[in-house]
């Protein structure tokens, strides 16, 4: 990992190592430290608080067994992203539920001061993001929403950087075709 982006600070590295060695207290602290980050990611993925809590919980349980395989060669957060995304995919598959529509109902979605127009647009855009193909959706969330570079996203998603760029391009094209000519009718 040449850039060394988001290398966890020394304290976290220490915590992870202790947990990997079997220290239960360290593991518990680790889960509590990263619960918020995982939840946020899960919520973006599904737009539904209850589902996000289920997914995060599941991801925490997976972490119990999966932590051993974290090899400290990347940022812990990126490794966690991968874990959460996979868990979310599994979760939806197991529910045979399609992500999306949840966000349509979510009341937390927009900033409170937003105008009704903005809120509706925001909900609709998110609803459309939810039904993008998984590859495009995860790329879009990581790059546009989380602000990662294409390269960082590519590492997390285990695809080539160009694939990430292409997926984002595709996703934006679709969203543009739906919401594109925004001002034309005004």
């Amino acid at each position: 990992m040449d850039s060394g982006f988001w290398m966890p600070d020394a304290q976290d590295t220490e915590l992870i190592k202790r947990a990997q060695a079997g220290d239960a207290a360290a593991f518990e602290a680790l889960v509590n430290d990263y619960y918020g980050i995982m939840f946020k990611m899960a919520f973006k993925w599904c737009g539904d608080r209850t589902a996000a809590e289920d997914i995060t919980q599941e991801a925490c349980i997976k972490l119990a067994r999966g932590l051993d395989s974290f090899r400290h060669d990347s940022a812990f957060t990126s490794w966690l992203y991968r874990l959460v995304i996979n868990t979310a995919k599994d979760w939806f598959k197991s529910q045979n539920r399609h992500p999306g529509a949840g966000i349509e109902q979510a009341e937390h979605v927009a900033a409170p001061e937003a105008s009704p127009d903005d809120i509706i647009l925001m909900k609709q855009v998110w609803a459309q993001i939810q039904i993008l193909p998984e590859g495009e959706k995860e790329a879009l969330i990581l790059v546009v929403s989380e602000g990662l570079s294409h390269k960082e996203a590519a590492l997390i998603l285990e695809v080539k950087e160009s694939t990430v760029s292409w997926r984002i391009h595709e996703a934006r094209k679709k969203l543009e075709s739906l919401f594109g000519k925004e001002k034309k009718y005004g």
Partner: peptide
């Protein structure tokens, strides 16, 4: 739109439950 999405606050009970199960 994608960055200003408001994430609901973490529910302490949910977190506790998850942590206990994971532990």
């Amino acid at each position: 739109i994608m960055q200003e999405i408001e994430i609901p606050p973490v529910d302490a009970n949910a977190q506790k439950r998850a942590a206990n199960l994971a532990l």
